[in-house]
């Protein structure tokens, strides 16, 4: 871990200014991913701005009947919130499917969106990785890719976004609220927040230097029945091979997003429209452009079968 100076920001404005004023500074919230990566010298900030005192730890009702979730709300607190459990259970389910109790106590809403890939080649600094070291190549493409992306990837990178929470948020049409280094704010639909790798896999998302996630907005509750089905080899504390987040209405319509398959929570709105026709039709649309490796081709069939299970459960409700 590279030596760094440490600062606690007392406000969001102070934090974004502190990070935005130099090119080697990073925000620190829970730290459950950042410190892991710093220990391996995958992240090498020279200055750390700890934002825990910025007051972003509240969940508030919004005027249009939704929720504004502060970026520092912990995964545990968000999943346990009565309003979330009642009105957005897909989010509670998604969060509780991820990581461990200890990590969820520390991990934050904003930090979780910024969780980096768990690709083994990204993690091993002896290996070529365009995400870690732009231009070095991608050792994963022809390598051990069972866990990696089947869609949305490029010939520069096949990393997956590993999280669960964001997959749940994706079917809820969540919006990310940020503050830039100059103090201005903006709202970014979660759909547009994570980038596909293309030629620049080093950029996971659209945030600018010094831009801080301040909150996530959920629109008013979507109703329907909520599901989060995560498929993994071991029963807990493992990243998804495939996960399915779905909100299914009584008439069979709904929304569906997939985790563990792409560099971002994977939702194709046109595929939602096929929900009434069953899992096969949804997958045909959602994974039309899939480019799996031999090792991870199974994920497409697995996604279809996992969705079929969700739809069967929805029908039997």
């Amino acid at each position: 871990m590279r030596p760094f100076t440490y600062q606690r920001a007392g406000s969001v404005a102070e934090a974004v200014k502190a990070v935005g004023s130099r090119d080697d500074a990073m925000f620190l919230a829970g730290g459950t991913n950042l410190l892991d990566l710093m220990k391996l010298q995958i992240e090498t900030p020279a200055h750390i701005v700890d934002i825990q005192d910025t007051g972003l730890d509240k969940i508030e009702k919004t005027k249009d009947g939704g929720l504004r979730i502060g970026a520092l709300v912990s995964n545990t607190a968000l999943s346990a919130d009565e309003r979330v459990r009642k009105d957005y259970p897909v989010l509670t389910r998604a969060i509780q499917a991820g990581a461990s109790g200890q990590l969820r106590n520390k991990a934050t809403t904003g930090g979780n969106l910024l969780q980096r890939t768990r690709c083994s080649y990204f993690y091993d600094t002896n290996m070529a990785c365009n995400k870690r070291d732009p231009g070095s190549g991608c050792a994963a493409l022809q390598g051990y890719s069972r866990q990696l992306a089947v869609i949305g990837s490029s010939d520069k990178c096949i990393a997956t976004y590993p999280g669960d929470m964001a997959v749940g948020m994706r079917v809820l049409d969540a919006v990310v609220e940020t503050m830039k280094a100059d103090g201005s704010t903006r709202s970014i639909a979660l759909a547009d927040f994570h980038r596909l790798p293309g030629d620049h896999p080093e950029q996971d998302n659209v945030l600018e230097t010094g831009e801080l996630i301040t909150a996530v907005w959920l629109p008013k509750p979507p109703g329907g029945r909520h599901f989060y089905h995560k498929v993994r080899d071991r029963a807990s504390y493992a990243f998804a091979l495939v996960s399915v987040a779905a909100v299914i209405q009584d008439d069979g319509s709904g929304r569906v997003a997939f985790g563990g398959v792409a560099p971002k929570p994977w939702r194709v709105e046109a595929a939602d429209a096929a929900l009434g026709q069953g899992a096969k039709a949804v997958i045909a649309r959602a994974f039309a452009d899939a480019r799996p490796t031999e090792e991870n081709r199974f994920k497409i069939a697995l996604a279809e079968r996992a969705l079929a299970g969700v739809l069967a459960e929805a029908r039997n409700a």
Partner: peptide, 16 residues
């Protein structure tokens, strides 16, 4: 061995 840590090399947990 590519998956050379305890996240990549999965061993059973309580829930298994």
């Amino acid at each position: 061995f590519v998956n050379h840590d305890l996240a990549g090399y999965e061993v059973p947990v309580h829930a298994d």
